[in-house]
Design a protein around this nucleic acid. Structure first.
Lengths: 142, 142
DNA sequence: TAATAGTTGACAATTTTACTAGGGTATACT
DNA sequence: AGTATACCCTAGTAAAATTGTCAACTATTA
């Protein structure tokens, strides 16, 4: 399993905010009960997203969370990295120096895997997910 | 970090065996000292690969480990899955049922990520790594 | 039969994960 | 003003995963 609940829960929450974009703040309680995620835990995940500038909050009665930018401007990669850290398959790619030549053969593989992942998460926007979802919903309604 | 040391160390060891394919068994000590991996820990990883039929062992003096098949017949994916389990980004793809419709929007992302990873690891063979490596070595020698 | 080398199972330190608990602060509504 | 609502923040914590270590055992060969 590549993604922990941090990334999975966080992406679900971000998607929910994207669905409600432009419709005022969505409360923590609403999200956590809809997706069956612990309220306090989700709060911590959303705090990370807020600190990195992806979401904004409104305090007080009728407050809640909302995307700080358009869903078309936030990629899945931004959300996942904010929550999980850099998505590298190996230390080798994020600092560790390869002294032994032969190790580099495995490094090539890790680089390819990383490219494969980044290719997906950096080219998919929350807006795409919303579109995709409404398509699926229309199909289901038929 | 997507891969734990299991996958990283194990792939390095498998690559080493591929380098020495056809040249008799390679001892645990040789591999662990070359890659600076704990002998006993690496032993556990190699045991997994043996149980899944990717490597064979010879006990006693001059014994060691060797690939059970040609490097051209073993993919990186086989090695990584044997060590890390299925490479899914989310439970959602490996059993967990999606009851709430909206969750499926995130599921689509996870599927794409999984495809991206599988595309790399299932299409790269240990033999490819050996070839790649000898190319790099030749370049370095110039 | 001694030395080498893999086999097995128990166990242990450390880190990460996935929470829980609870007090603090801002806002809106009455 | 008071109160309920809802985010804010820090600390703690149990369980799991990670990353090993140790020791006794078995097989092989020189």
């Amino acid at each position: 399993m590549i993604l922990s609940t941090k990334g999975r829960y966080g992406l679900k929450a971000a998607f929910e905010l994207a669905l409600n974009y432009g419709g005022g703040p969505v409360s923590l309680k609403t999200i956590s009960s809809k997706y069956n995620i612990s309220e306090n835990y989700l709060e911590q995940l959303l705090a990370k997203l807020r600190k990195q500038g992806y979401i904004e909050t409104v305090r007080g009665v009728n407050g809640g969370y909302m995307l700080a930018r358009k869903p078309e401007e936030i990629t899945v990669g931004m959300i996942l990295r904010a929550l999980e850290g850099e998505m590298t398959p190996s230390d080798c790619l994020s600092g560790e120096v390869c002294t032994r030549e032969s190790i580099c053969a495995t490094r090539v593989i890790f680089e390819k895997i990383e490219m494969g992942i980044n290719n997906v998460i950096d080219n998919t926007y929350l807006g795409d997910m919303v579109k995709q979802n409404s398509k699926v919903m229309q199909e289901a309604a038929k």
